[in-house]
Design a protein around this nucleic acid. Structure first.
Lengths: 162, 162
DNA sequence: GGCTTGATACTCGGATAAATAGTGTCCGAGTCCTAGCGG
DNA sequence: CCGCTAGGACTCGGACACTATTTATCCGAGTATCAAGCC
């Protein structure tokens, strides 16, 4: 089992967007900042756009911008946007197969294994939901106060360069 | 992201082993009970054996048996035996790359994103660790009291048939 | 009759192929900006 | 001088290859069982 690399990329991108005041930045430029493959990052950001986390701005000075306040974007939102909202564990209901299948009456209640797995995933998501993009940005600027301004300048300089 | 199907199979297999009093059952027979590919289930059970959850008994009337009491086997144990113990989220430290890499002083503290992700996974594992094989078996026999005995008979009948 | 010994049937165990999900790339549709043209 | 228009450059967006992981399978090594032969 492995979480998509894109999740990490997307969160970093969102944090960077916070520091440039949510203003639109192109996927190419966001990718350049972390030496990522631009087209693939673009694909991830598209997913975030579809999920309503980001909004895409077409045109020359377009790009991706935060769709709402960073306090209202949790890491879970980003995660689900990229991974999809289907659970990691999918019960195949094998208890209903084989020479001694579970009776239909038994299957009225969901499979215990499934319940446990889904419960654990719920705990996992709840923990992710407790942390927002704004919180991450605040943490970083607490440990390295100069970073946000430097990042902002780098993105603006790029805008000037064009 | 997707959890290995083998996890579900392995837990079902463990529960069945509880009902036949932990006695050894061959992977072929365990597979037959749920219409699973025998060789592949065998592979999963091998992983559990390596992890010390099951013990393998070679020879004619051999198979796999619980290595310890079902109360001492959590769903997390089974999960980690099959999925491995490396975290689902692996930070690539992309903050250290690109034109504006994070300073080494900043990297003294772990990446905030990584911390959040690992914390969420810890919550997930903790939840899985709260449930044991014995608990699942008890739940099933509470909703369908006849099942354990019927399963036990089926496995024993198989032993007789040989 | 009891013990040794060999064959046998069954088990696990790891090495080896298909299928699927993740990773990465490409080019087209659409939009905004800019520069030139006419009024 | 001001408004209109055509062109261009840049953006997202989804369709198309490539790689790694998961899924599935096969055959060999090893062991307990069992039966026959020997003491």
């Amino acid at each position: 089992m492995r979480i998509n690399q894109g999740v990490e990329w997307a969160i970093h991108a969102c944090v960077n967007l916070v520091w440039i005041d949510g203003g639109p930045a192109s996927s190419a430029r966001l990718a350049e900042f972390h030496e990522l493959p631009p087209a693939y990052l673009n694909k991830q950001l598209q997913a975030l756009s579809r999920a309503g986390v980001l909004k895409s701005v077409p045109g020359q000075h377009g790009g991706f911008a935060l769709a709402r306040a960073p306090e209202a974007i949790s890491t879970l939102d980003v995660m689900q946007a990229i991974e999809g909202d289907e659970p990691a564990f999918r019960c195949a209901e094998i208890r209903q197969r084989g020479p001694l299948p579970a009776s239909k009456a038994s299957c009225r209640t969901p499979c215990q294994i499934n319940s446990i797995m889904l419960g654990a995933e719920a705990a996992w998501r709840a923990e992710l939901d407790r942390h927002t993009i704004a919180e991450i940005a605040a943490d970083v600027s607490a440990t390295a106060p100069a970073v946000p301004e430097r990042v902002r300048r780098w993105f603006l300089r790029g805008a000037d360069r064009s």
